[in-house]
Design a protein around this nucleic acid. Sequence first.
DNA 1: CGAGTTCTTGACTATCTCGTCCAGAACGTA
DNA 2: TACGTTCTGGACGAGATAGTCAAGAACTCG
Lengths: 196, 196
Amino acid sequence: MARPRSFDEAAVLHTARDQFWETGYAGTKVDDIAAATGLGKGSLYGAFGDKHALFLRVFDHYCGEAADGTRRQLEGPDETAYRRLGDHVRAIAESVVADRARRGCLIAKSTAECAEHDEAVATRSRQLFHDLQEHLTACIAGAQRAGDIDPGPDAAHLGGLVLAVLRGLEALGKGGVEPAEIRAIAETALAVLPKP
Amino acid sequence: MARPRSFDEAAVLHTARDQFWETGYAGTKVDDIAAATGLGKGSLYGAFGDKHALFLRVFDHYCGEAADGTRRQLEGPDETAYRRLGDHVRAIAESVVADRARRGCLIAKSTAECAEHDEAVATRSRQLFHDLQEHLTACIAGAQRAGDIDPGPDAAHLGGLVLAVLRGLEALGKGGVEPAEIRAIAETALAVLPKP
DNA sequence: CGAGTTCTTGACTATCTCGTCCAGAACGTA
DNA sequence: TACGTTCTGGACGAGATAGTCAAGAACTCG
């Protein structure tokens, strides 16, 4: 009935995400996104609304992916919960180390830049941190039931601690801290979790 | 011999700092700073150079203050090292909680926004993180000598871990995590430091 | 194949923003 | 007091930037 879109929405969002990721919200020009995606600005505005709406689409999707990925890495039977936790923490450390361009995490960058003034961003990051902590807490509780972590401390508190360490690794990586140091911090964090 | 400056350089830098802090580097207009300080742009450019040079002045000074403040809080005799460490961690948690406007930390914000592309910012944040970790490590080593922390683990690794937790608290605070949760994470971090 | 609808392209506007510049002001010195 | 120097305030210019718009393209259904 009408002319179909000539672009793949997901691919455009992916490219837009890379732009926002690289230059931040304020630092990204709509023309940059248009150039990177090959779309005219009319198509961009027609399909996604203005710059802010486009950013929110990108940010939402990224938050969802991050939460899902974490959940998948952490969920499973109690018997292997401790191993999954260790794998997850080490995977985050490795991803920080591997990010040689120090692009960092889009969530950290966006939250730092926008959460203060942009309620939509603030809401989403609050929700994401909450979800991440829940997944970590569930995994830790499993490890406690399996006897790999001291069941004494509140699992939610330990989950919060691990989340803080992970967010901290992210921040330190962005600040250029050495790979060896990043890895050492991850290992130390795992080592100090109280054994039964 | 010539007309003297009519403004206090330190006060202008302080006001400029607040502007950059509130709206980020890219989001801050030179005109905003001019309006906030009451200076004409001619004076601003004459005294500090361009926007980037002004930002670096502000950022440098802030980094120096942060390192000094941390050093002052953490240095002292071994006997009270453990207490000083606890006080410091709790003080950071309280400052995160008290920041109801979620302005966050200028270093975190600037590093997230600029370190990737601005070598000057990257260098300064790397240096700052290094200094902070050294102060934490020295304090922890003192607590180990005093018998308040297990002397087994490498003090530098524990220092790195605490630094990561502190940076993580900052990030979570920015993300809107509840005050009670922030405090609980700080306490948990202190609690998991291994006792002798 | 024609009509109707949506998409595309890129020129265009209005505003913003950095940095410059200059005329006049303020000060110390001779 | 007159002069030279530096500072001040704000107007100005060049270029950037968000968002709009109109003319034509592409597609489907009748």
